[in-house]
Computed example of a mutant assay.
Amino acid sequence: MTMKILSIASEAVPLIKTGGLADVAGALPAAVAPHGVEMTTILPGYPAVMKALSRPRLPGYPAVMKALSRPRAVHAWDSLLGEKARLVSGKIDGHPLLVVDAPAFFQRDGGPYVDGAGRDWADNWRRFAAFSRAAADVAGGAVKGRKFDLAHAHDWQAAMALAYLRFAPPAGGQRIHSVMTIHNMAFQGHYGADLFPALALPPQAFAMDGVEYHGGIGFLKAGLEAAAAI
């Protein structure tokens, strides 16, 4: 029997990379496949990712990128934390790939986390909360035809997905096991408590064993609290 895992990551080679997280997230699907595991990677729809999906066979692309299948939209959100979004499905080198195409959050110049001047995007908390909310919906079975046995979140940008699965699972969805992996402890996603209402989590989530962290919100901490294994 094949085990199905949703790997939730903010970057993965060869589509987008700023550090070692991308190397690991990109290599995992092929590494676990011989062990009876089908791993689907879900990524934010950054410009580089959407460009690769729309033109997967451009000359000069790395060989693995030439193995990208043509994408198709499989789900849509009228309001993903207040913005329209869709879920795009494809394959890369034979492994399932999902992309959260939310232009208001991810279609912008600069890098995945910083603007062209190297400054953190002021709304990173909202961008990756939205990505996490979408990933939680997918992992929890809200998308027709997508069922998973395990959600695997990588670093703070994906950690809130596990909190959403714990405190606000998709309606009619299934509860699944979860794993949290820390690639870089230096970045934890710590924000002010005043942002909590915008996360669309129930009041009980703002607690010591939830998303609360030193009086504020801790994205990584929330994932660690919600995960079944670290």
Rank of each mutant, 00 (worst) to 15 (best):
G215Q: 11
K4T: 15
G140N: 07
L43E: 02
R72K: 13
V32T: 07
W125P: 00
F105P: 00
T41F: 02
S69F: 01
L195F: 13
A22G: 05
D23K: 09
D93T: 04
L58K: 13
Y191S: 09
G145E: 11
L28F: 11
M1D: 14
I5H: 06
M185V: 15
P44Q: 06
D149A: 09
A12P: 00
G145W: 12
A198G: 02
H177T: 10
D120N: 14
L6E: 06
S54C: 10
M3K: 15
E38G: 07
R133Y: 07
E225P: 00
P71W: 09
K66S: 08
A30K: 14
H152F: 13
P14K: 10
P170T: 06
A52K: 02
V49G: 02
A130R: 00
Y164D: 01
G172Y: 10
D109V: 09
G26I: 11
G82S: 09
K17C: 05
A168E: 12
A159F: 05
L201D: 03
P34A: 07
F196T: 13
Q107L: 10
H177D: 15
A129M: 06
H154D: 08
L81I: 09
I5C: 09
D209V: 03
S79Y: 03
R108S: 09
A122V: 14
Y46T: 04
P34Q: 12
F131A: 03
Y164F: 14
S54F: 05
R57L: 07
K66V: 03
L28R: 01
V143I: 14
G218I: 11
R72Y: 08
T18E: 10
V37T: 13
A134R: 01
G223S: 14
L28P: 01
T18N: 08
T18K: 04
P169I: 14
F196P: 07
R108T: 11
D93G: 15
A186D: 05
K51C: 03
F148Q: 04
F131I: 10
H95P: 00
K84C: 06
G189Y: 03
Q174F: 02
D209Q: 15
Y164C: 03
A134D: 06
W77P: 01
S7D: 11
A142D: 07
G20I: 05
P56H: 09
G36L: 12
E212F: 05
A158N: 08
V32E: 04
A159W: 00
K221A: 14
G223W: 02
V143C: 11
T41L: 15
R55F: 12
L28H: 03
L195Q: 12
D120R: 09
A25D: 02
